[in-house]
Nucleic acid binder design. Structure first.
Length: 877
RNA sequence: GCCCCUGUGGUGGAACUGGUAGACGCGCCGGAUUCAAAAUCCGGUUCCGAGAGGAGUGUCGGUUCGAUUCCGACCGGGGGCACCA
């Protein structure tokens, strides 16, 4: 980059640009000769020419499958991707150098809503848009220097990919795992189209602003609930998953033991079946509530005034759980009364209620206001009686609703029992009466896979007037998407395509219509990890042998936002595929790491409009102003990078201005990977500075090869100890994903080498060893510059092919320990003692220390606690 | 609303299973180099205090010889909630 005729280091240029300081660097000195761009592209070419990361399936080495969640090709990579793939690359390179046969593939989660939005906004075909984005993003990812075997790349929108998932769906269908049922969708009444939850903003359609309605649609479902127990039990085996993800999945599946039973309806020949997890509170029942779309709703209340209005109100609610839970709880009294199963003289009103879900349990509940907040609110609102039936064991007065442990009161035969015992007794009694049974319910619902959209995998089914629903024959796959679609009309372009849906029935040959729904895009991401094992197989999704060799994924890495859905669907899919004979694994991901988000400060102009960080610059007076207009800019809070708030950084700028190694180093240093990372200019500049420093450290002093001496001076010995300690801890840090600590450790070693350098000659064996270990330790994080420096040291090997440096364990041991001495828990001195010293002797040494003596101040020693090699705590009275 | 996570100097963070709080970095301060600056190098940097010493890990309380770490309550920030991926 040229500026004023002088070659200027690019980071400086970038910073100057940010500050808006375009003054002439007249006497600017030419900086270090390190030209990162040339070096980086040179080494990427070397790896490519040598096929360093191509997978060898004949290898005798143990396999190791490193996988980062594949990206959605939205246009350009974002910093979150850089973080994700930098992390994975450290693991892949580290494992490779530790003797594993590593597979590290990449592909594209290429179906999805944004492509259709682009089509509507810009008139560009979703496929064209997607493939163009893939080309851009592939180039971007490649410029990061990732150790990826690009020959295995897949794109899920490619018919050679999705044909196999159409086959899978047919296999699931034949196995009874796929079925149709009605379920609710968000409906935009103006566009006449189904909206995704994210397209519903404050209960209104994002484009039309019309209040969204709930509407029933017949859709395809996969029976994930068949696997509820297995998915739940399997969580226990996932010992290399974060606890929080396992807990979230457990809660999501939500297995609960309870009671299902029938309330007889007074004066009617009908009953309402309810499910409850609190059968013990049955004597506290104040009402029965059923879902507005319950089959009995119309029958019980259809003639009542206000019924239609009530249904309309409910239909105006969103379909998401958050929307339902946060909406005001409202009910509609049917006027019908339900008879208490234990006492026929007692009846409770039956309400329709907007918070009862038809999808969960039986679509009906009974409410016990004294022991549940929601029921309490409901009863208060509709002035229903509240009867306490559980009281604390000590009989204390409590504020209702009370949901803790206790004993039953006001409950006839349950009185005096504890909650758990009462649950069992109530279930037993109901079973004896023959009106119900103890059962297990799951919060988990079946997976609705139908989407009324174009840019997805067509569902290979045909609707025939005489034969009903008929699967497309296997040899007719794939059912491909038509290219000539228009997005000028709202709704699904597949449905209003003039010819596409017209076909013949595979069964009777008569004219029939194709299913125009496409799959949820979670479908594609539920098996892509298996496709990577055998990506060019045309006959089948993947060969069983290859899957058996490579699966499960040993280390999966991705955003914590996928903790439930994607990961649970993939676990289900793998089981279902296994049951259909595709493979023999159940758990797709043996190890999981969930990274935090990338955040950045936000900027707004005077009108409150969001600005890109590059639009906000500091002027000479130190004020934050708009780069073009000079108008004042305010800096807002630090938030997750998002296009809508414009607080995004384009990785291309970073890679161009600082280089891939600096970008990777920054993203791996400072913040622990599981936590959020705040992107800052000073952070990336600090990293770039270090890359240059490392380069100088190794290149500025000429090194001549030296024989390893038989004896080392104490200083050399110390240098070697530091070197081996650093590398030994480094491996442990990388394995534990403590990348920030790993970097800190190496920086410490670099500091130690710098100090050592100033007092020792260049031809020192220990010095050379330290430098070589430093370079090799940094290689997984900064692969380019370390290769360059390795070559500079005169090696004709490349680090990408090398094994991890050997650690001399004898250097790690120390024969002394520094021990802290506390008096009454307060640190008073440190003493250095021989390692594993006798406790009595350590105690004596501690007590004789002058600082300790002073702190004791002649007081009587009551007790001395000695933790060997760590601490001595003297307790005085 | 429900579930999950998180809170340590000016700042990002470190501290193995309860045992020397602040590693490493950013920033800042001082120095070297320079005509001067940038870059680079060296030193310092939790707070209060001249010092001895005292205080200190969101807040309050508890367990312990000893708590950033364990327990309880509260407050702040974030993620997920089934059609965003």
């Amino acid at each position: 980059m040229l500026l004023c005729g002088h070659r200027v280091k690019q980071t400086q240029y970038f910073r100057a640009q940010r500050r808006g300081l375009f003054r002439c660097f007249k006497d600017f000195k030419v900086m270090a000769a390190y030209e990162m761009k040339d070096i980086e592209s040179k080494w990427r070419k070397v790896w490519l020419d040598r096929q360093s990361f191509a997978v060898d399936e004949e290898s005798k080495k143990q396999k190791y499958y490193v996988l980062e969640m594949f990206p959605y090709p939205s246009g350009r990579i974002h910093v979150g991707h850089v973080r994700n793939y930098s992390l994975g690359d450290v693991v892949a390179r580290y494992k490779k150098s530790n003797g594993f046969n590593v597979i590290h593939p990449m592909g594209w989660d290429a179906f999805g809503l944004p492509a259709e939005n682009a089509a509507m906004e810009r008139g560009e075909h979703p496929g064209k848009w997607t493939y163009a984005n893939i080309d851009v993003m592939r180039t971007q990812l490649q410029s990061m220097g990732l150790s990826i075997d690009w020959s295995r790349e897949v794109a899920t929108c490619h018919p050679q990919y999705y044909r196999h998932e159409q086959k899978m769906f047919l296999d699931f269908y034949r196995k009874g795992l796929a079925y149709r049922k009605e379920s609710m969708v968000n409906w935009d009444p103006i566009d006449n189209t189904v909206l995704a939850n994210e397209q519903v903003i404050d209960g209104k359609g994002w484009r039309t602003g019309a209040p969204v309605e709930r509407r029933k649609l017949s859709q395809w479902f996969l029976k994930i609930t068949d696997y509820a127990d297995d998915l739940l039990d399997g969580i226990k085996t996932l010992d290399r998953w974060p606890d929080k993800v396992r807990i979230m999945q457990e809660n999501w599946i939500g297995r609960s033991r309870g009671l299902q039973f029938k309330f007889a309806l007074e004066g009617l020949d009908e009953s309402v079946e309810v499910f409850t997890t609190r059968p013990d509170t049955l004597f506290g029942a104040a009402f029965v509530a059923i879902a507005p779309d319950h089959p009995l709703a119309k029958k019980l209340a259809g003639n009542k005034a206000g019924f239609d209005d009530f249904l309309k109100t409910c239909a105006a609610q969103g379909t998401s759980e958050a929307a339902i839970e946060q909406a005001e709880k409202i009910g509609f009294d049917t006027g019908v009364r339900a008879v208490h199963p234990f006492d026929a003289s007692k009846t409770v009103p039956v309400y329709l209620a907007n918070f009862v879900l038809m999808d969960y349990g039986t679509g009906a509940i009974f409410g016990c206001p004294a022991h549940d907040q929601r029921d309490f609110d409901f009863a208060t609102k509709y002035k229903l009686p509240i009867t306490q039936v559980v009281a604390p064991v000590d009989g204390a007065e409590v504020k209702l609703p009370y949901s803790d442990e206790g004993v039953l009161v006001n409950s006839d035969f349950l009185n005096g029992m504890e909650v758990e015992a009462a649950k069992a007794a109530a279930i037993e009694k109901i079973e004896k009466l023959g009106v119900g049974f103890g059962t297990t319910q799951y919060r988990l619902r079946d997976w609705g896979v139908s989407r009324q959209r174009y840019w997805g995998c067509p569902i290979p089914m045909v609707h025939c007037k005489s034969c009903g629903i008929v699967p497309v024959a296997d040899d007719q796959l794939p059912v491909t998407l038509p290219e000539d679609v228009t997005f000028d009309k709202p709704g699904n372009p597949l449905a209003h395509h003039p010819t596409w849906k017209h076909t013949t029935c595979p069964s009777c040959g008569a004219a029939a219509e194709r299913e125009t729904d496409t799959f949820d895009t979670f479908f594609e991401s539920s098996w892509y990890f298996a496709r990577y094992c055998d990506p060019r197989n045309e006959k089948e999704a993947f060969s069983k042998e290859k899957a058996a060799y490579w699966l499960p994924v040993d280390q999966y890495i991705g955003g914590v936002e996928h903790a439930v859905l994607h990961l649970l669907y993939s676990r289900f899919f793998t089981r279902a595929l296994s049951d259909c004979g595709y493979c023999d694994v159940k758990e797709p991901f043996a190890g999981l790491f969930t990274q935090g988000m990338v955040t950045h400060a936000t900027f707004k102009d005077q009108d409150g409009k969001w600005l890109f960080p590059t639009q906000a610059v500091t002027n000479d007076a130190g004020q934050l102003v708009h780069v073009d207009t000079g108008a004042p800019v305010t800096e807002g809070r630090i938030e997750k990078m998002s296009k809508s708030k414009k607080n995004v950084i384009d990785p291309d700028d970073i890679l161009n201005n600082y280089g891939a190694d600096a970008a990777r180093l920054f993203i791996l240093s400072d913040s622990p990977p599981e936590r959020d990372l705040e992107w800052t200019v000073s952070g990336i500049e600090g990293a770039a500075k270090f890359v240059h420093r490392l380069y100088r450290l190794v290149t500025e002093i000429p090194l001549q090869a030296v024989e390893k001496p038989n004896e080392f001076t104490p200083a050399q010995q110390e240098m070697r100890t530091q070197t081996h300690k650093a590398l030994s801890g480094l491996g442990a840090d990388i394995e534990a994903f403590h990348m920030n600590k790993a970097v800190a450790r190496l920086r410490e070693l670099a500091n130690a080498i710098e100090k050592y350098k100033s007092v020792h000659s260049a031809g020192d064996w220990a010095y050379r060893e330290a430098l070589e270990y430093l370079i090799r330790g940094f290689n997984p994080m900064m692969p380019h510059v370390t290769e360059e420096l390795w070559a500079h040291l005169g090696h004709d090997t490349i680090l990408a092919d090398m094994t991890w440096p050997e650690i001399d364990a004898s250097l790690l041991q120390s024969d002394t320990a520094t021990i802290a001495v506390q008096v009454n828990g307060k640190m008073r001195a440190t003493i250095t003692l021989p390692k594993d010293m006798d406790q009595k002797a350590a105690e004596a040494a501690a007590l004789s220390d002058p600082n300790v003596q002073r702190a004791l101040d002649g007081k009587a020693v009551k007790k001395v606690i000695v933790v060997p090699n760590r601490i001595v705590n003297v307790v005085v009275g």
